[in-house]
Design a protein around this nucleic acid. Structure first.
Length: 480
DNA sequence: GGTAGTGCCG
């Protein structure tokens, strides 16, 4: 591989194999070259490891998610702690904000779930250096714990805050409470809520929703209802979120009839406590989950008379129910009735295609998809991807390609998963449909679409053996 | 400021 030895701006190492015992097998893929910004940050990060944040402050480079990912990818190889410090520093940067997606990505790259010590080590490092850690920084660390779903780590960090003379606020507590609840550690969560009172913090709406949901999920409806009373007693007026959570618990653990009755009392409320689209969707899901999709229709009518418009989630719930219970005619009727200003025929039919697939009705789903194409509708990228994949997995590669080609001919291609392209291309080549393969490659080149280089090796080998050398080199040109 | 309830995607 005579590539890139001379390239100094290397980086963006992708660790393809993550198990710790195969560090030698780490594949260094020069997929995307790191940005100048990432290089600058990396240089300053490694300059003087005892003054990390100060060094970073002096860097003048644009901070964005791509650049952060690149820095983390590099740090993950042998300096995960520096990666954590960089991530925390970046969160406080005035021109940048991490999304929840970035928190998850950082956790994955730095492997916090398997190696929580990387977090505790960083906190201990701050302490040893006498670094002043703010509440804001601790909240970033707590969000990392949340992304890693590590309740013990969250608890540890919350305790550490005192040592840094940081007073956790309600949000800090809420994050840890939610983590405990996700692990069904309800008593400990209640303990933290009590502890809040001792330092003059009060549980807020978010705290109550979390713990009420915890009790509902555990089937402890009486406790959940008791908490609603407690919050009212504290002057915290329950809103639609609180009541929807309770309604969900009733659907799952008591009865749909009681939930309906409760919905009725909500409908008589005013302002923030009135049912909204989520409340009605929860009720609809309740019916669907108990195999009573037809009755969900009545809820839809009730929603309409309250002036609440159903959204995508509402439709997915009902369509899922109809498909599972075999009420296809009802599904079509529903779509006819509701397609209009909010949601188009295309979107609703695409949802139906997805619902049919989820219900295991692949034939019906493909039929609906073909009907869409025949009537000039535009299926969503997701529906198209799933249908083509499903057809290929049944061993009908050529059919999959014909569907793809029909989509292409009907106008602009929807956003299809990149792995659909690689699966389709591999299938066509394997079955020696070289004309179609060439057509697909042509479309990909035209649309600047690339497939993972790891997927191309077998294809190229097969093409070379078959004497299709031109095609083989075309495939090389679209690998990423 | 970005932690909560239906659910999908990044």
């Amino acid at each position: 591989m005579p590539i890139s030895i001379s390239i100094t701006r290397y980086s963006s190492f992708l660790i393809a194999l993550k198990t710790p015992d195969c560090s030698l097998k780490r594949l260094l893929l020069f997929s995307t070259f790191s940005s100048v910004a990432a290089e600058k940050f990396l240089t300053h990060l490694q300059k003087d490891e005892s003054n990390v944040e100060k060094n970073l402050d002096s860097v003048s480079a644009k901070l964005d998610s791509r650049c952060i990912t690149q820095v983390l990818e590099r740090c993950a190889i042998d300096k995960p702690k520096l990666g954590v410090r960089f991530f925390i520093w970046a969160a406080l940067h005035p021109t940048y904000r991490h999304t929840s997606y970035m928190y998850e990505k950082a956790c994955k790259l730095l492997d916090v779930e398997r190696n929580p010590q990387v977090i505790t080590d960083v906190i201990d490092e701050y302490r040893a250096e006498g670094f002043v850690v703010s509440v804001k920084m601790f909240k970033v660390v707590l969000s990392l714990c949340r992304a890693a779903k590590d309740a013990n780590l969250g608890l540890w960090v919350l305790r550490k805050m005192k040592e840094f003379n940081c007073r956790p606020d309600t949000v800090s507590y809420n994050v840890v409470i939610r983590l405990l609840i996700e692990k069904a550690r309800l008593d400990e969560a209640m303990g933290l809520i009590r502890e809040m009172g001792l330092i003059d913090l009060y549980p807020d709406m978010v705290t109550y929703v979390s713990i009420i949901k915890g009790f509902c999920d555990a089937g402890r409806l009486e406790d959940a209802v008791g908490l609603v009373k407690v919050m009212k007693g504290h002057g915290c007026v329950p809103n639609a979120v609180v009541y929807s959570t309770l309604l969900d618990g009733m659907c799952k653990h008591v009865s749909l009839e009681m939930a309906l009755e409760f919905l009725g009392t909500m409908e008589k409320e005013n302002g923030e406590s009135k049912p909204n689209v989520v409340t009605y969707t929860t009720m609809i899901k309740g019916f669907v989950e108990k195999g009573r999709a037809m009755e969900a229709l009545k809820v839809l009518d009730r929603m309409d008379s309250s002036g609440i418009k159903p959204n995508t989630v509402t439709f997915v719930a009902i369509l899922d129910g109809f498909c599972k219970e075999g009420h296809l005619e009802e599904a079509y009727k529903l779509i006819d009735k509701f397609s209009g200003d909010e949601l188009q025929y295309d979107e609703l039919y695409s949802m139906l295609v997805m619902s049919l697939l989820r219900a295991g009705k692949h034939k019906e789903s493909e039929k609906t998809f073909r009907m869409m194409l025949a009537r000039g509708m535009r299926p969503s990228g997701l529906a198209s991807s799933r249908i083509i994949k499903s057809v290929i997995s049944e061993g009908r590669v050529l059919d999959g390609f014909i569907l793809f080609d029909a989509l292409k001919k009907s106008g602009e291609l929807p956003a299809i998963d990149s792995d659909v392209y690689s699966v389709l291309l591999a299938g066509l080549c394997e079955e020696n449909h070289f004309t179609e393969a060439a057509k697909l490659i042509h479309i990909m080149v035209e649309g600047k679409l690339q497939i993972k280089s790891s997927h191309t090796e077998k294809i190229i080998k097969h093409l070379n053996i078959s004497g299709e050398n031109d095609l083989a080199s075309s495939v090389s040109s679209i690998k990423r």
